[in-house]
Amino acid sequence: MDNKGKTLEECFDAAIKKYGDMVYRIAMNQMKNGSDADDVFQEVFIKWLQHYDKFQSNEHEKAWLIRVTINQCKSILKSSWYSKTDEMKEELENTLVYTDTVQEEGSLSEAVNKLPEKYRIVIHLFYYEELSILQISQALNEKESTIRTQLTRARRKLKQLLKGVEFDV
């Protein structure tokens, strides 16, 4: 980690430049809305600043950020306030006509958002961040076999959801 000679602000700017998009995208992937993703983003980088001088390598820093981002998302998702509002949202969704498959092209994000959180993050890290199964397993503290299974199941679910749309998952 080469932070020598840099001011705190410069270090922070460099980290935002390097990892800001990644953190925000993971937050969006998990939270599914901008305002919650904003909160996660803030918390993660506040925490980052408290640890910025402790990272041994860029890989360590990246893995840490991925992990903390996901943890932060889960904390919010698990909070009582969120679970209550989520219940309301679910009730609302139940009253609407539910379509089993995503019919329109361009609603890829909608299909991905329908996946459970654990599948969404695996899909995102694999396809977007282009991490290997091993790297994902390290970042998520899971066994490689678990990640492989989750990825297969996520693909299978996506195939079902994207029926009729030409996506080669």
Binding site: L8, E9, F12, D13, I16, G20, D21, V23, Y24, R25, M28, N29, D38, F41, Q42, F45, I46, W48, L49, L108, S109, V112, I123, H124, Y127, Y128, L158, F167, D168, V169
Partner: peptide
């Protein structure tokens, strides 16, 4: 799928206001 997925997420960025706010708060 990969290209479409990437294309979708490529458009997602934290807003400059958010970055500024975060920086201020963190510091």
């Amino acid at each position: 799928f990969k290209e479409d997925y990437k294309k979708h997420y490529d458009e997602i960025h934290p807003s400059p206001e958010l970055v500024e706010r975060t920086k201020k708060m963190a510091l």
